[in-house]
Structure formats: C-alpha cells, structure tokens
Design a protein around this nucleic acid. Structure first.
Lengths: 213, 213
DNA sequence: TAGATTGTTAATCGATTAACAATC
DNA sequence: TAGATTGTTAATCGATTAACAATC
C-alpha cells in the first residue's frame, strides 16, 4: 500500500490501463515481446497519443524507436494500479452469475484473490465453486473479517441487495462493492460502489449501434 | 429508426441516461410519481446540474418547481435512446454467464428482445433458457438473418471469440457486439463493439477503493 | 407571496489531441 | 545515416459545473 509517488492518476486513464493489461497479455501470448503505442491503440481503439499520455503516468518503460517491452510494461501498470498487493474478494450470491464470475474470471492473474463465496441456499452451501467452498450468508460478517476481504461483488436478487450491502458495510474492512443487481445501493461515502447493471450495457449497445459512434 | 431531430447526444450523457432509467423504475416502484434533479443526482452520485444538463438533451419534460414526472421522463429517455423500437438480441454461448444473462436481465422492459441463444454443446441445444430454445451454433448465420438480429453478446470461451465474431459479421445485419470474453476482437469499422471484460471492473474497483475517488 | 426547481447559457475544468525534440 | 517512435509540453476540444432568469 505504498502511496503513489507522482500525481493522482485520472479515472479514464486508470480504466484504460486495466484494459491495456488484457491486451498486453494477449499480445504476449501471440509471441510478441514488444508493442508500440500505435499497435496498442489499434487494438484498444484509441490513438497512439492517448496511449502515450496514459503510459506517461507510469514510471517510464518505453524505448524510443523500439516501443514498449510487454512484460516490463505489464509490471509497471500493475504496480501503478496497486495490483501488486493481493486484494481479497468476496462474491455474494452463487447463482448463475456469481458462479460464472467465480469460475471464469481470471482474478489471480490480476492481483485479486477470490477469498469467499456466500449464498443462502442449502443446496449449494458447502459445495466448491471456483476452487473455494460456498459459505452460508449468515456467517457473512464474521467470515469477511476473518478472511480480510476488502472488495465484494453483489450477485444476489435485487430484493436482497440493500440488506446484503448493509452487512458488507457493517462488517468493516470492505472498501469497495461491485454491484451487478438492478438496485442502486445506499452506503456511506467512504465505500466505493461501482454499478454494473448489465442491462445498461445492452441499452448502450442498442443506442450506439443505431446512431453512429 | 427515426433520425434524432436535435444534435447528437454525447456518449457520457447517453450512458447516464440508461442508468437513469433503472433509477426511475426503482423510484416509481417506491410509489413516487415525481422526481427532482436533486433526488436523481443523489441516487446516481452526480450533481443536479449534470442531471438537468443531461435531461436538457430530451424533449423537455420537467415542470419548474415540481420536478419531473417519472413516467413521462422514462418515456422521453426511451424515445431519445431509440428504445421505443424493439432491438433483437442474440446471446452466443449458453454457459453460466450466457444463461445468467438470458434468465436474469430484464431486456423486455428496456426495448430489447432476446431472439436467439446459441451454443455448441449437444446437452443444452434444444433446451429452453430465458424463455427461448437454445440453437446449434452451426445454424448461427442463417438464424441471425431469419430472426432479424441486430445486436449480439459473446459469452463463449476466449478461444472461440474471434471465430464467432467473424460469423456475426458475415451473417450481415448485426451492428453491435457486447464482448464479455477476454479477447479483443477484430471487426470491420461499421460494427460497434463494447468490451466488457469483467475482470477489468474488479481491477478498477480494487484500484479506486484503495486510492480515493 | 416566497421559496423551490427547472431550462438554458456561460465559465471552468479536465481530458484528448497535436506537435515536436530527443534519440535509438 | 535516415526513419521511427517515445517522452513531454502545448493547444484544442468537450464535458462538467456554476449561475441565474423564468415560473410554478
């Protein structure tokens, strides 16, 4: 949890940096050891200038004329985003969405450790999902503390969303919530909530694919 | 597919408008017939000024001193975003993520019709998921045309992503792709791709919940 | 009426884009 | 060497915020 030495990183830049990480991994797995700002921007869909401006926020890693070493750049981004320190994650709700996330999202590659899954259905409590055992949501607060969990994602039915959010807050230690439920949550100001209502992505796609851009 | 009468709507505004729709629905279901820019911004997490600036892009619907009628405003947003006309959607890949989306996302409320689901596993082809029958992905192109599908979402393993994307493009008619796979896609410029790699949301949450904002 | 809240323009802020020297 | 590409500053662009008249 080193304090960032230079100025704050802007929100749009931080968001793009996370996406660059995936592109870099893909690029590396294709056997490329270096990448230029032009190549990266072609894949991402922005401009070389913006890529360089983003990477300028890191400890410099490029070599003029040769582009960026993919591995070096990957590490620089991870460090800048604080993904070098493991962040413990809990998934609340182990229905189809929760278990899809648990099983398919490559957390460990990006500095996140899936440290707890919770549900209220007896049929699934005790089963292993994504490599760990599903716990009873009744034990949520106690277990969150025990496992030092600092971020959580809500994959429960909308009707249970606020109630679970309240527990996440009262447990202490949870600083961020990724909310996949339809409901907007009321939480204290010091808790970061990122709303990811899936249906919004579909509406946006419908709109943008109709009216250009 | 009426052409928008006034100027183009900006990307950030369009994205927020889709989220306002969910908030309005929630607000209405709590028994409130009107909402002020202050109330809406409190829930969304922005400012009354920004809300009014966003809503200024619509046919005006507010009443000074009384705020906005929730139903009227909802319809105005839907119309402005073109969600009045039904958009036909296909889900490609009926694993946990694909079926979670098919079953839990309330498409029909927001002008989107789930018109096709495709997979390559015999065990699930022919079964009903989210109210419609899973088809063999081998019939993808033919079926996309038959069902007049214009947007699609990729919920397949990364290894199959580009291949399926190519089919979506070659089928014709598909204008937008929501990509939940880890892979970046290569598609022609006239196809809108929105990348929604879930792991990025988690990285962003980890970052933002550490370093303020 | 007075207070509240919108509609709308103007000012500010921040992000993107452009430019170019440095240099490999 | 000449050409390519970064690092970095400056210019532009667009989005957010502020302000306030209109008015219910």
């Amino acid at each position: 949890m080193k304090k960032s030495k230079s100025r704050e990183i802007s929100r749009p830049t931080a968001e793009r940096l996370t996406e660059y990480l995936l592109i870099l991994e893909q690029h590396l797995s294709c056997g490329n050891e270096t990448i230029s700002s032009k190549e990266l921007s072609d894949v991402f869909g922005n401009t070389p200038s913006q890529v360089r401006q983003d990477l300028f926020q890191l400890e410099n890693t490029g070599r003029i004329r040769h582009g960026y070493n993919v591995k070096t750049l990957t590490m620089a981004i991870r460090n800048r985003l604080g993904l070098g320190n493991i962040t413990n994650l809990a998934i609340i709700g182990c229905g189809k969405l929760g278990s899809a996330i648990a099983e398919h999202v490559p957390f460990s590659v990006y500095g996140i450790k899936l440290a707890g899954i919770f549900d209220n259905h007896k049929s699934i409590i005790g089963k292993k999902v994504g490599g760990i055992m599903v716990e009873n949501v009744k034990d949520l607060e106690k277990s969150l503390r025990k496992r030092k969990i600092s971020i959580a994602t809500l994959c429960v039915p909308p009707s249970a969303a606020q109630e679970v959010a309240d527990k996440l807050v009262s447990a202490g230690g949870v600083r961020g919530i990724l909310n996949y439920t339809q409901k907007r949550l009321k939480v204290p100001d010091n808790i970061v909530v990122r709303d990811r209502q899936i249906v919004c992505s579909f509406m946006q796609l419908a709109f943008f694919s109709n009216q250009g851009v």
